[in-house]
Nucleic acid binder design. Structure first.
Lengths: 210, 210
DNA sequence: TAGATTGTTAATCGATTAACAATC
DNA sequence: TAGATTGTTAATCGATTAACAATC
C-alpha cells in the first residue's frame, strides 16, 4: 500500500467501487476493465486507473481487474472487516431509523449501545438492543470498549454529549447534528451528515432551471 | 445575479453560510466581515468573498456584510421561500424519520403525500399526514401538483417507482436508495444520500491512523 | 482623513483527463 | 504474435488562496 496521503475525493469514491464490484460479482462477472468500470460509475477510465493505483497495482495488462480480488482489496482498504464498537446517542426519529435500518456489520461497525434521556422510551428495544439512560453512559463506556459514537440528538444537546464522550476517550463521530465537533476538538475523526443542507442544495437545483 | 454557471462546490457551501448567518442574527450581530465569517466556517476570507461574489456585491467596502441582508439574499439564491410539493415514497424506518423530523417548510418544501405498499401501515399517520397505498400514486399526482419525490424504498423497488414518478412528470428526486436515477434519466435533478457510503468513509478514516 | 474591508485579478494548488510506453 | 489494457507521466481543467487597488 502506498505511503502518499490519499485524497478525500478518492476515498469518497471507494464505497461506490465497492458497491458496483459487489453487483458485478453477483452477476458472476469475473473480470472488468477500467473502461467498463468507468462506464458503470459514469466517470473516465483514467480516473478509475488513477484511483485504484493509489493503493497498488491490482490490474493486469491486457486483462483488466479481477472482480473478486479488487472487491476484497477495497474491503481491506476501507476496513469493512472491522467491528468498531459504536454507541448511538439519541433514539429519536433519525436515531431509531439508523439503529434499525443500517447493516452495521457490513460497514465495519457493531452497535453496542443506545442512549437517550427520554424516560418514556428507556428500556424499549431496537433490534434486540435496549435503549439505556444517558446517565449510564460513563459506566457503560468504562465497562465496554467503545470506538465511535453516532450522534442523533438535537444540536443544543450536542456540545455536552461530545464533551462527555470525548472525556471517555471516544474520538470518532458520525454526526447528524449541526454542531461543529472539529471546531472544538481538532484531533477527532468526524463524518458529518447534514440532511437539511442536502435538502437546501436540492431546492437550489430545482430552482436553477428558472 | 451572475450569468456564469455556479460551481457545485460553491452551492454546497451556501447552506452553511445560511446556518451561520442565522446564528449570528440570533445573537443580534448586525454586520460581519469575510474574515470573521471565514473563521466561523473554518475557511479563508478569500473563499468567502469569492463565493458571495458569484451572486453579486452584497458587501460594503470598509464595513463588511450586513448579516440580515446577506441571509435573505442566500435564502433567495437557495430558493428556500419555495414550497415545492413533495411526495415521500416508502414509510419504512428512514422514510418515517424523514417525514417526522425534517422541517420541510424551512427548506423550500411541503410534504403533501406519503406512499407505501405495506398494508399494515396504510392509513396510519405521520405528522397529520396519512400513509396512502402506492396504488393511488397516479391518481394523487394527477389531482395534485407534485414537484419532487423523496425515495426511501429498497433499492430493488426503486427503478419501478421512478419509472412511474417520471411518467407522472416528476423530475426531481431526493434519493436515499443506491439506484442510479441519473443513469437512466439524464434530464433529472437528483440529490443522493448514501448513508452507507458515508459510514464506509468514516470506517476508512478511523482505520487511517494505523 | 485613516483604517478597514471589499471586489477582483493573478498565482497556486489539487484533481481530472489524456496520452502512451510497458506488458500480459 | 497481435490486441487489449494497464500503470504512469504529462496536460488540462477547476477550485482555492493570495494580493492589491478601489472605496466606503
Amino acid at each position: 500500500m502506498n505511503k502518499e496521503k490519499i485524497s478525500k475525493s478518492v476515498i469518497r469514491r471507494l464505497p461506490r467501487y465497492y458497491r458496483f464490484l459487489s453487483e458485478l460479482e453477483e452477476q458472476n462477472v469475473e473480470r472488468v476493465s477500467s473502461g467498463r468500470l468507468a462506464q458503470i460509475m459514469r466517470t473516465t477510465a483514467s480516473q478509475v486507473r488513477q484511483d485504484l493505483n493509489c493503493f497498488g497495482g491490482f490490474g493486469h495488462q491486457g486483462y483488466g481487474y479481477s472482480v473478486s480480488t479488487l472487491k476484497s482489496e477495497i474491503i481491506k482498504i476501507l476496513g469493512l472487516n472491522n467491528r468498531y464498537k459504536a454507541v448511538l446517542i439519541g433514539a429519536g426519529h433519525i436515531g431509531t431509523a439508523i439503529a434499525a435500518h443500517m447493516k452495521f456489520n457490513k460497514l465495519g461497525f457493531e452497535l453496542t449501545g443506545i442512549f437517550d434521556n427520554n424516560e418514556e422510551i428507556l428500556g424499549s428495544k431496537i433490534n434486540e438492543l435496549e435503549i439505556s439512560d444517558i446517565k449510564n453512559l460513563e459506566q457503560f463506556c468504562n465497562e465496554n470498549k467503545v470506538d465511535v459514537a453516532f450522534l442523533c440528538i438535537p444540536k443544543n444537546a450536542a456540545p455536552e454529549a461530545v464533551k462527555r464522550l470525548y472525556q471517555l476517550g471516544i474520538k470518532s463521530y458520525w454526526n447528524f447534528t449541526h454542531y461543529d465537533i472539529q471546531g472544538d476538538y481538532p484531533d477527532v475523526v468526524v463524518e458529518n451528515v447534514h440532511l437539511s443542507d442536502m435538502m437546501m442544495t436540492l431546492c437550489y437545483s430545482m430552482n436553477e432551471g428558472l
